[in-house]
Amino acid sequence: MRNEQLKMMIVSALFAAIIAVFAQISIPLPFSPVPITGQTLAIGLAATILGSRYGTLSVGIYLLLGAVGAPVFAGMIGGLGSLVGPTGGYLVGFLPTAFIIGWYLEKTSFSVKQAIIANLIGMIVTLAFGTAWLKVAADLTWTAAIAGGVTPFIPLGIVKAVLAAIGGIAVRKRLESARLLSIQTN
């Protein structure tokens, strides 16, 4: 049991590193202080593969690394300033996003259909947290915050949700069949 927990904590740390790498896939938008990044795809993969507990742990490790100054956030930046700046709400929103995706899958099934639904819900959670904070941090109206913090992210967000679902379920099934993934769902 203890070895299994240690193994899953190591896998969670590995996924934190994967999130950091995917964060560097970043497309700046001229009309928004928030870039399009690969973070949400990596978080969807982590939660779909690892479930609520370890998926959320991987995001927590990632955020902690960034908060203490490791350059893991988009654009190779880190530090507490990232968490209180215009993108801070998206970063903080990754925690409930990972938990909700994993929890939803644990309560339904780890199938592609359910994973797509879970990842789309996760996209909405991230955008809600991010946009609410963007409004405050950048002193925007709701209309401007939604225009810069939601609208440009929906099309690619849907694509990333589907990719995270399909890829995540495929990887999870292979890891389970190889007995490399032992996750107890609640």
Rank of each mutant, 00 (worst) to 15 (best):
M1C: 13
M1E: 13
N3I: 11
E4M: 12
Q5A: 12
L6W: 04
K7H: 13
K7V: 01
K7Q: 11
M8D: 06
M9T: 14
M9E: 14
I10E: 05
V11F: 15
V11L: 15
S12Y: 02
A13E: 03
L14T: 14
A17V: 13
A20T: 12
A20I: 14
V21C: 12
V21E: 04
A23H: 03
S26L: 03
I27D: 06
I27M: 12
L29M: 07
S32D: 03
P33V: 02
V34I: 15
T37D: 14
Q39D: 05
T40G: 09
A42Y: 02
I43S: 11
G44P: 04
A46D: 07
A47D: 09
T48G: 03
I49N: 03
G51Y: 06
S52F: 08
R53S: 11
G55E: 04
T56A: 10
L57N: 00
I61Q: 14
L65P: 02
L65W: 14
A67R: 11
A67D: 08
V68W: 09
A70C: 10
F73W: 13
G75P: 06
L80C: 04
G81I: 08
L83K: 00
V84R: 06
G88M: 04
L91F: 00
L91V: 03
G93A: 04
P96Q: 06
T97L: 12
T97H: 01
T97S: 02
I101E: 06
G102E: 05
E106Y: 11
K107P: 04
K107L: 10
K107I: 03
S109N: 15
S109M: 01
K113Q: 07
Q114T: 01
A118I: 12
A118R: 11
L120Q: 08
I121W: 06
G122W: 05
M123G: 10
M123S: 10
I124V: 13
V125C: 01
T126K: 05
L127Y: 09
A132D: 05
W133D: 03
L134Y: 08
A138S: 14
A138Y: 01
L140N: 02
L140A: 01
T141Y: 14
T143R: 14
A144Q: 15
A144W: 06
I146C: 01
A147L: 14
G148F: 00
G149S: 05
G149E: 02
V150W: 04
T151Y: 11
P152A: 12
L163R: 05
G167E: 02
G167L: 15
V171S: 11
K173V: 04
R174E: 15
A178S: 15
A178C: 09
L181E: 02
T185W: 03
T185Y: 13
T185N: 15
T185P: 00
